[in-house]
Design a protein around this nucleic acid. Structure first.
Lengths: 272, 272
DNA sequence: TAATCTAACAACGA
DNA sequence: CTCGTTGTTAGATT
C-alpha cells in the first residue's frame, strides 16, 4: 500500500527513465483493473509516446502524446517495476507495458489496483481522480486550509485525514506518526481541535511525509528499480510499535481499534 | 422543500427587487443555521450593498459589494419572503435581513436550512456549495454527461440523481415525474440503463424542471412575493398521485418505499 | 416526511 | 476473519 512518499519517489524515477518512449504492447492478466476492454485499451495506448509523469496523492498520471493519460493506483501491497531492454522481467504481474526499445514496466498488486486510460478532456469526469483533495506537500496545504477543512466537522479526525477527497496521499501507515507528532488522539472530533493543535497537525503532516520521501520511502516497499526504501521500522515513532516505549514519555504504545482501522498510539501523549 | 424551479424563480425576483440596497440589520432566531456567531456575521454583512443574486441547484448566492457572498439553502418546508418598506413583515422567521430603506426579506424553514456568509476567496472551500454537481438546465448537462455519470455505478438511479454532488437541484418532488417520463423504476441499478433510457432520462429531467419554472414553481410553495406557483397537483403525472390512474396506461399509481425515500410510480410503465 | 453529513458495511482474493 | 480502499447504504441532526 504505497502512500504519497512512495508514489512521489516512483514518479521521479519514471520521469528519469521512460520519457519519450513509444508503447509497443501491453499484457493484461487482470482485465478488471482497466476501465475498458483490453482490446480497446491496447488500441488507444499502443503506438503512443510518453510525455511526462506526475502524481497526486496515491495516483500516478502518465501523460501520452495522444492526450490520453494512463492513471495508475497501486492499491495495496503493490509494486510498479521498471525493466531494462536486456534485464530481468518480473514473471508475475497484473499489467505489463513494453516500449519499442524492449524496456517497460510491470504492475503487480495484491488487491484493488486501478489502471485507467482517460482522455485529457475527460479527466474532470474521472471519478477516482477528479475529486482528489489537496496534496499535503503543495502550497495549497496551509494551516488555514486545514482549519477550514476541520471547521464544523462532527466526525473523527482520523477518517477525515484519510479521506482522499480531503487530503490526497495519507494512508493508514503515515497517519500514525502524523497524529502522534501532533499529540492528537485518532478519535478526537475534528471540530474540537484547538488552533494550536491544528497548527501542530499541519506541521506534522508535512514533516512526516517529507522525511520519508527523503529516505526513499518505506523499507518494505519497492521503488521503480526494485530497491527498498530507507524509512525503516526504527524511523516510526509509534506506528506498528505495539508495546515499545513511547519516544516522548516511555509509556508502552498501544494498538487500538478506531472505527474500521487499527491505530497505534501513546495513550498518555494522545488523550481522547 | 423548494427545488431548482422554485429557487430559480426566487432568484429572478430577488434580482428585480433588491439590487444595490444596503444592509441595515439582521435578526437571527436560529443561530445554528449560520456558519459563524451572530455578532461576527452581523459585523461583516451590515453596511454592505447587494450586487447580484445567482442560484445553483437549491442554493441562492447573494453577492455583496464587500466580496462576501450570502449563501442560502432553504432546507425543507421553507419560504424566503420579501417585505416592502411600508408593507407587512412576517412575524415568524429564523432569519431576517432589513435594508436601509426598510425593505428586506425573512427566511423561515421548517427543518435544516443554511445561511452562510463566505468570502469570495473562500468559496472554493465552502463544503456545501463548492462540490455541487452540474445544473440540469445548463449546457453542461448533456446526454454524454449523464452517461458518464451512470457508467459503472452499482447504486440505484434515484439516490444518484438526488445527490446534489452529481446533479444540483433535483429533490424528491420532481424526481417522481422525471423517472416516470423516462419510464425508469427508481430502484434500477444506474449502470444497467440502456443508452436509450439515458437519453429519455436526460430529456425528462430538463423538460420537467423547465415546465415548472415556466409555471412559476409549485402551487404549495411561495415565491419572493408570497405568491404561490402554478405547477399544481394536476400537473404531476405520478408524483403524489397514489391510487390515481397512470396517464399512460391507467394502472393505479403506487406509493412505494425506495431506500430512505418515498416514490410514486406506475409499476406497469416503470419496471424494476 | 423533508436534506445533508457521518458511520458502518460490502466488495474485492488469498 | 485479516488487510486497505472505495462505493453504497443506513443512521443522526436542529
Amino acid at each position: 500500500m504505497p502512500e504519497l512518499p512512495e508514489i512521489t519517489v516512483i514518479c521521479r524515477q519514471m520521469n528519469k527513465e521512460i520519457l519519450g518512449k513509444q508503447v509497443y504492447e501491453i499484457r493484461v492478466n487482470q482485465p478488471k483493473c482497466l476501465n475498458m476492454p483490453v482490446k480497446a485499451f491496447a488500441k488507444i495506448i499502443v503506438g503512443s509516446r510518453t510525455r511526462r509523469v506526475s502524481s497526486k496523492g496515491k495516483w500516478l498520471f502518465l501523460k501520452l502524446d495522444s492526450n490520453y493519460y494512463l492513471l495508475m493506483n497501486l492499491g495495496m501491497g503493490a509494486n510498479l517495476l521498471y525493466f531494462k531492454p536486456d534485464g530481468w522481467v518480473p514473471e508475475k504481474f497484473q499489467f505489463k507495458l513494453t516500449f519499442t526499445d524492449s524496456s517497460g514496466f510491470t504492475i503487480r498488486f495484491f488487491w484493488f489496483g486501478y489502471i485507467h486510460l482517460v482522455h485529457q478532456k475527460e479527466l474532470g469526469n474521472h471519478r477516482l481522480t477528479a475529486n482528489l483533495g489537496v496534496a499535503p506537500l503543495d502550497g495549497e496545504f496551509t494551516k488555514g486550509f486545514l482549519q477550514r477543512l476541520l471547521a464544523g466537522r462532527r466526525g473523527r479526525i482520523k477518517p477525515l485525514l484519510l479521506d482522499q477527497k480531503n487530503i490526497a496521499g495519507i494512508g493508514n501507515v503515515y497517519i500514525q506518526d502524523i497524529l502522534f507528532n501532533a499529540r492528537i488522539h485518532p478519535n478526537r472530533v475534528a471540530s474540537t481541535l484547538s488552533e494550536r493543535e491544528v497548527g501542530k497537525l499541519h506541521e506534522a503532516t508535512k514533516t512526516v511525509l517529507q522525511r520519508s520521501i527523503e529516505k526513499g520511502g518505506l523499507a518494505y516497499e519497492m521503488d521503480f528499480y526494485g530497491q527498498k526504501g530507507n524509512f525503516k521500522s526504527e524511523d516510526f515513532q509509534v506506528g506498528y510499535k505495539t508495546g515499545k516505549p513511547c519516544p516522548a514519555c516511555s509509556n508502552p504504545i498501544e494498538k487500538i481499534r478506531t472505527g474500521q482501522t487499527a491505530s497505534y498510539i501513546c495513550s498518555r501523549c494522545q488523550r481522547s
